[in-house]
Amino acid sequence: AAAAGLCLFVLAGNVWLAAAGAALWGVGAALAFPMGMSAAADDPKHAAARVSVVSTLGYISFLAGPPLLGYLGDLTGIHLALLAILAPILLALLLAGAAKPLKTKQAAETT
């Protein structure tokens, strides 16, 4: 949803398509951080360290992303600069399978 919404937003020919793209982009992107936190906290033995890594990556993205997009926007225009966000979205899509719940000992015994 995030990738489709971003592409629709950037390539839209009118404001209504851009608004629909922004909404779709937001709905898709809003799920990424909670999903990452949940997946990081699955293993109680390593939860604290994993959650700290996910939150650190989130804060780095939050702080470094806007200046990077501004710089790219100065070089190429803001619409093309926004397409740079497509790379991490597609990477997250490829890595989303790693966030599936861990099998617990109890669940492994019943299967």
Rank of each mutant, 00 (worst) to 15 (best):
A98C: 04
G5P: 03
A22N: 03
L68S: 13
H46A: 07
A47P: 03
G65N: 05
A22Q: 06
L93N: 04
G21Y: 02
H46T: 08
P34S: 08
L24E: 06
G21D: 04
G21F: 01
L95G: 03
V51R: 03
K105H: 07
M37Q: 08
D43P: 06
A64L: 15
T104V: 13
F33N: 09
L93I: 06
L8R: 05
A48Q: 10
L95K: 00
L102F: 04
V54C: 03
L8Q: 01
I78G: 00
C7V: 14
S38D: 07
A47W: 12
G65C: 07
I60C: 12
G36H: 05
N14P: 01
I85C: 13
G28H: 09
S38V: 02
K103R: 13
P44E: 06
L82W: 10
D74A: 14
L63W: 15
L57V: 14
W16F: 14
P88K: 10
S38C: 00
L24F: 05
A1H: 11
F33R: 03
L8N: 00
L82T: 01
M37N: 10
A30Y: 09
L24T: 15
K100V: 13
P44N: 04
K45M: 06
A96R: 13
Y59M: 09
L6A: 02
A18F: 06
M37R: 07
A30C: 08
T76M: 14
A30P: 03
A41T: 08
C7E: 02
D43E: 13
A22W: 07
T104M: 07
V54W: 04
L72C: 11
D74N: 14
L72Y: 10
A49G: 12
Y71W: 14
L63M: 13
